[in-house]
Design a protein around this nucleic acid. Sequence first.
DNA 1: TTGAAAGCGCTAACAA
DNA 2: TTGTTAGCGCTTTCAA
Lengths: 347, 347
Amino acid sequence: MQIGGEEKRRATIYDIAKVAAVSPATVSRVLSGRNTVAAETRGRVIAAAENLGYRTNSLARSLASRTSDIVALMLPDITNPFFAELVKSLQAAAFGAGYTTLICNTEGDPDLERTYLNQLLSLQVKHVFVIGLTLDRDTVQDYVAAEMNFIALDRPMRHATSVIVQSDNRKGAELAVNHLIGLGHRRIAHIAGPANVALSRDRRRGYLNALAAAGLDADDALIVRSDFSELGGARAFAELDRRGGDFTAIFAADDVIAMGALSAARASGRTVPDDLSLVGFDDVLPARFTVPPLTTIRQDAAAMGDRAVEAMSATETKGSRRRRFILPVSLVLRGSTGPPPKRSATC
Amino acid sequence: MQIGGEEKRRATIYDIAKVAAVSPATVSRVLSGRNTVAAETRGRVIAAAENLGYRTNSLARSLASRTSDIVALMLPDITNPFFAELVKSLQAAAFGAGYTTLICNTEGDPDLERTYLNQLLSLQVKHVFVIGLTLDRDTVQDYVAAEMNFIALDRPMRHATSVIVQSDNRKGAELAVNHLIGLGHRRIAHIAGPANVALSRDRRRGYLNALAAAGLDADDALIVRSDFSELGGARAFAELDRRGGDFTAIFAADDVIAMGALSAARASGRTVPDDLSLVGFDDVLPARFTVPPLTTIRQDAAAMGDRAVEAMSATETKGSRRRRFILPVSLVLRGSTGPPPKRSATC
DNA sequence: TTGAAAGCGCTAACAA
DNA sequence: TTGTTAGCGCTTTCAA
């Protein structure tokens, strides 16, 4: 196979046109898959293209057609395993739909977000998948006005209307806490996610709902905040411990937090699940390999990617569509949960 | 701030030229930062550009100039935490040098690699950072002939000459194993990485070197292979166990493998580090939060990204340069290693 | 079904 | 220091 190196210059549609004895316009028609070309002509063009080792210049195509087959995914933290899985699934789905996905890691920094968005705009990128933009409403609206199409994943965009694909976070939290309550736990702590992320609120709400439904009182002393990191989880556990430690179970806002809490719990001398039960959220791969493996709420990253790409294609074809896709979640039972220790069990 | 939405059409350099009463060429000169323009003219152009809410069309620029400020990073598995950290550091370094980084997750699939490479070629992307391509030599050479510049990260490209930036893997393995030997271990197992990845060989070599230097015999029964995943690590431990389990320590080819092995070891009833010591490689963030925290060899992902971008810039300015950058590694002591259990210590 | 011709928005000689 | 003139490689009317 030759890729176009030997010759100084890469073959263009003009070269093909010459060889196939047709006009460049016809070559363009064949190559971009329009069906308005005679089968015989099309055959000649395709043969010529192959002989010449032709390869489309996407730049020129996008410039002339004002379209782009690049889409982007902006996310705050590529090292979060759930996002990494989401990247994978989205990239695969987009690829299947003929798009190449540009990944932009923003660190939750609005300046970086703006810079990336500007870059994307100048690349004529139309569709941007977003996991929790921190940019203010007005700025986002400017990009929308410039005809960018945003598709929110996992978390809605603050103050902006866009398609959103997310899991049923409240329900997931309820499943988690109901599971703990079912095991006999009465003092259940919650390590919540950052206040500025909507899903933190949803999961916290689910936690409170489940407690209320079981007739248990919520206790603010049993709720602490953390960012979505192991370190955050470890610190949050320490804080909980400092406040008295009167709890037999923890529902953490995500698996990474849970892993950090698990580590800190162990360091403080507790055994999981004998002294303390722990439930996470996401079901990321590493959560299967903690000691003990983590009981958690499964989010379907693959479905999220698929749904998001479908939503994008839908806006392509027929303008606006369904704005909200809520994906189901499920409880995954593993080793980090069990009945509360006898001595502190309350009935 | 207006981004160009209000007007139907985005402002071009022609619009600016009209407003600033200069030629489009001069506008181009100003906007692309060439210094051959009078200060007064430049001022007028910049003012006009700002008024019009101008934004560069990178597509047109790349098409005309045959350059691109997009670079790509191809890697086999974005969910590997070490790669995720590398993505972060490379992206930051490239961004600092004025480039936007396209991340391509290949799953180690040669077809996907080829597809991505073709896409990149048609985007006029010149520099591609690569973590372990699986494509065959001839195909890679085709891309090189098409003037792609490859920069290998972490692992050399098979059969291809390119700049390579990697850690001192052999040395790292020696540090790890020497540490275990220093603690008194004599039967040290090794979970090696995949055979087709060069750094697996380097780390294995370091393991063997360290044993030999200490006058210890290597034992093939104590070496098993795994891919770089938790599941692989868990299976490898099971295999080691099945073979008799006559070892007091394990040196794993990376942290993810170590985490899997840790999980399996625990499931088999062993306590780390009392019954078994464990050393990983990479020093990824989650390795700090295992129970116990993982003793490991630290690779400097940030330095790797920086060096890689420097190497890229060097080829930009003055053709070929240093071909090999070897980064130092260091031993990070944490809780997963200790002296061998009394009953099986051999002296 | 096909071709001619005019761009898409920018850069890059070459002159002036 | 600045302007003129061709393109870069493709798409897209409009005619034929």
